[in-house]
Design a protein around this nucleic acid. Structure first.
Lengths: 340, 340
DNA sequence: GACAAGGGTTGAGTCGATTCAATTCAATCT
DNA sequence: AGATTGAATTGAATCGACTCAACCCTTGTC
């Protein structure tokens, strides 16, 4: 009930508060007998060290914030798991914050994290050009940008999204598609813009006879994917694209659902490629081809960089790590066979 | 760089620290002119209030911990979103912790949360009989059990899992199945045990000619579902169950994948019902029938109960809220038509 | 026996914000 | 003028753990 403090422990163990603190933090310098007495007192009182007071005194915590775009997207969950795995080994706690693609929420979470004086922050910003991460860095809070390239003033880990888009585009073209749709979210999200630039590049490289259509939605969700799918299904077959490259797997799944409800076949009427290769992609109605990113590795690397910066603030050099995506081909992008 | 404190702000604004604190917490009692000067000083110095010190002084934070069984399961993500939505309206922060079904991790997270002196904890315990939540309550930290019934010493929100299992079982029996498998995780997880008890009840009620087989795995994941699916697919058709009721949708999706890779048809060779009705269930290779739970409502209600307990510790009465599940029928549980 | 060395232990001071009794000062009342 | 009121402001004490200079003992050495 009433929480015990170090003083009460000291009293019961008949030692000073300094000794109790030593038992807690450097047990090896305390004589075994005293140590024992203190442990007994701790157990008897049910004492739990107040991390808040400790933190105030020592000036830094062992907590890092991870602000992601969308917890409902398994991609970010996997990134978080990667980060957590590393954090666990450095008795560091990761607090997961969801901006849900909303700059306001993102802002509030960052404020809160700063007020809590977290050790550092990993963030996938809602908008590429937000100044907040920079400001945080400037105020002395290490920040690592995740899945978003930085300008050199901070560390970042990212996957080459242009390349990913390009691979996807080239694959569809190679499979015979000449009328390709890009289904994405707001272009203000860097990942979306880059993936789009990637396909656009592949289409341009293919010469004049390949056409690229672009459909965007306010968010990269299953529901938005479905909505775009509805519109696409309503088009006359001659105008309808024969393949769609989606900015993430959530949208691809939505698209797939819409096709199913309108009796259109995937990949015969519409081939689909997603992005992220989340676990559910393989279990979809039609197993999804998808551009795979090293999700957990992204998280692991991000926190590695952060911990490194925290450990040696002096000689730390900011780094931009970039991974390569690769394509996982499944049934949703089988070769194009024009329908009768 | 060097973080500013209230004293520096006071100095610059030529007021006392008490006044700065008042500006921060009860601006209405400070004269407009002074208030203005203080705000200017805050802006000029880039002062950010140290929540840690504040917390130490006032003795309680506005953070609640949410410890879930598995963040990779969209069910829990939705519960978390429900909780977060409510927390947002009470400027409270939710920190999401993942026990990943591991009692050790769960323990460590609880320790950490207790050390941080969080306002309260929402938890889906790994094992039904863990004493830790009780101990936390006893030490004065409000705890609400989520998706797990409590003993009366704390609040809880749950869904009637027995009923859910019973509904699923009755549905399969009504569809003509006489050889039903329960595919689940460790029986030490209360939800699994209850859902199993539910089908078992339905089977018993149907009289002697319905048979129930039980397969359990160490975790409720897609991979484990697939593994069980492999074993099931390997059985001669005569011994193989004609329907499977899975303890959650993740396992159901795994099972579905295994059937697909072995050329068995769902629902013709094996009907499947999942549990939770996560969004991906509808997008599966064969849209999954599933027992739906009010996921977000579960989260909302849990934190409502917690906030209530925090607000009026005195006259708070612990409550056990129980919701009813319902069945969403899709193609994976179409009527049983014995195969030639 | 005097002195040094060093392992153990002590406790006052500190971190930054909040609290609240005490103080100031101008406005209002008698 | 003097007394009263009350709004605004002050600053010392406080929350709980950590730090570190100072101190206390042994033990060992010459």
């Amino acid at each position: 009930m009433a929480t015990r403090n170090i003083k009460e422990v000291a009293q019961l163990a008949r030692v000073s508060v300094g000794t109790v603190s030593n038992v807690l933090n450097r047990p090896e310098i305390v004589s075994p007998a005293t140590r024992e007495r203190v442990f007994d007192a701790i157990k008897e009182l049910g004492f739990v060290r107040n991390e808040v007071a400790r933190h105030l005194r020592v000036g830094h915590s062992r907590t890092v914030g991870l602000v992601v775009l969308d917890v409902a997207n398994p991609f970010f969950v996997d990134v978080a798991r990667g980060a957590e795995a590393v954090a666990d080994d450095h008795d560091t706690m990761v607090v997961l914050c969801n901006s849900a693609g909303d700059a306001g929420r993102e802002r509030r979470h960052l404020d809160q994290l700063e007020q809590q004086r977290v050790m550092g922050i990993l963030i996938t910003p809602v908008e590429a050009e937000t100044p907040w991460p920079q400001e945080l860095s400037a105020r002395g809070i290490p920040v690592v940008l995740v899945d978003s390239p930085a300008t050199g003033l901070q560390c970042s880990v990212a996957v080459d999204d242009r390349l990913g888009g390009q691979i996807a585009g080239a694959h569809l073209i190679e499979r015979g598609h000449r009328r390709i749709a890009f289904v994405g979210g707001p272009m203000s999200v860097k990942q979306v813009a880059d993936r789009h630039a990637g396909v656009a590049g592949a289409v341009a490289a293919a010469g004049g006879d390949v056409e690229l259509l672009t459909a965007t939605a306010p968010a990269l969700t299953v529901a938005e994917g479905r909505a775009i799918g509805e519109r696409m299904a309503a088009l006359p077959a001659a105008e309808r694209p024969t393949a769609a490259f989606c900015a993430n797997d959530m949208m691809a799944l939505g698209l797939l659902q819409a096709m199913a409800t309108h009796g259109l076949r995937v990949p015969d009427d519409l081939a689909i490629i997603g992005y992220d290769d989340i676990d559910f992609a393989a279990a979809a109605a039609v197993p999804l081809s998808s551009v795979r990113q090293p999700r957990e590795l992204l998280g692991r690397t991000a926190i590695d960089l952060l911990l490194e910066e925290v450990a040696e603030p002096g000689r730390h050099r900011h780094r931009q790590v970039i991974f390569q995506p690769d394509l996982v081909v499944r049934e949703s992008s089988a070769p194009y066979r024009p329908q009768p």
